[in-house]
Design a binder for these strands. Structure first.
Lengths: 147, 147
DNA sequence: CATATTTAGATGCATTTGCATTTATATATG
DNA sequence: CATATATAAATGCAAATGCATCTAAATATG
């Protein structure tokens, strides 16, 4: 009789996953709490605003943004709604595709992105930068290239 | 005039955070998808069942579980509801504290935990083990001790 | 050209989450 | 002992999420 024996992950692999999870969750909570504390929008808004700011000239399409940010389609659709309602982006009709739209950041959006970065960046430095010795950073980054 | 200049995180710090996020999200999605594919409960159930299985003899209190798993109180309360409804744990009255309860895993819960591990472990091996060279694992683990 | 298929994006609905509050019991304090 | 405070756990409600589906426009196919 044959048994299927799964390939058990090594103890180290399991530990890596646990540390990865805890680190991620701790850092994320800290960043979100910092933003909330400063009465700023959640982190997801930042990613959108940053991407829009980067390509400000070329007016990006939602489905492109989706690929960049790895968000589900419905999720991005709603996120754009909220950010638009807050006045940080505009949805413009799309000439070359009647189904689509072009999304552009507003002046207020640019300002908000900067305000968010002041808090986000500081939180990141506190939660990551100050925890990893300068000489270890490149090593960690190299090893983290799983995906 | 004085300006407040925030401590900008280094480019490497930012990259670490981005890689960390993407890796975490990719691995988690893969694990959750594997469990769903196998028609098994979500990962959060596993953590609870594992903890209960470990201390099976001593019947743990929800607030202790909360500390172990770093879950919000209301979140664990509801999670226990669902797992209980599915028959994988039992809530028993607590003699030494009338406000509290003792939570114990059932026989079915133990079986379910094992079934989940077969899938979860294999997914972990595939998503982490096979991506990190054996000789890099200890290094990565060491560097991940941020929290 | 007419019809079928695909793609971009929105949305209805059920489930889940987060927050604040509630209930009940335990502990501290006068 | 009576009352105030703290702690364990549950829950009402609003907001967020996931899934499936819908609408509209674009592209492919006969």
């Amino acid at each position: 009789m044959y048994y299927f024996k799964m390939t058990e992950p090594s103890a180290t692999t399991i530990d890596i996953w646990i540390k990865l999870s805890r680190s991620y969750q701790a850092i994320l909570s800290f960043i979100e709490a910092s933003l909330k504390q400063a009465e700023l929008p959640p982190l997801s808004w930042y990613d959108v605003l940053l991407e829009l700011d980067r390509v400000a000239s070329t007016a990006i399409r939602p489905f492109e943004l989706q690929e960049k940010l790895l968000l589900p389609q419905y999720s991005l659709s709603r996120l754009l709604n909220k950010i638009e309602k807050a006045g940080y982006l505009q949805r413009l009709p799309c000439n070359e595709d009647g189904r689509g739209q072009r999304v552009v950041i507003t002046r207020e959006g640019k300002t908000m992105r900067k305000r968010m970065w002041a808090v986000y960046g500081a939180a990141l430095e506190q939660a990551v930068g100050s925890k990893v010795a300068r000489e270890d950073r490149e090593k960690l980054l190299g090893l983290l290239k799983l995906y």
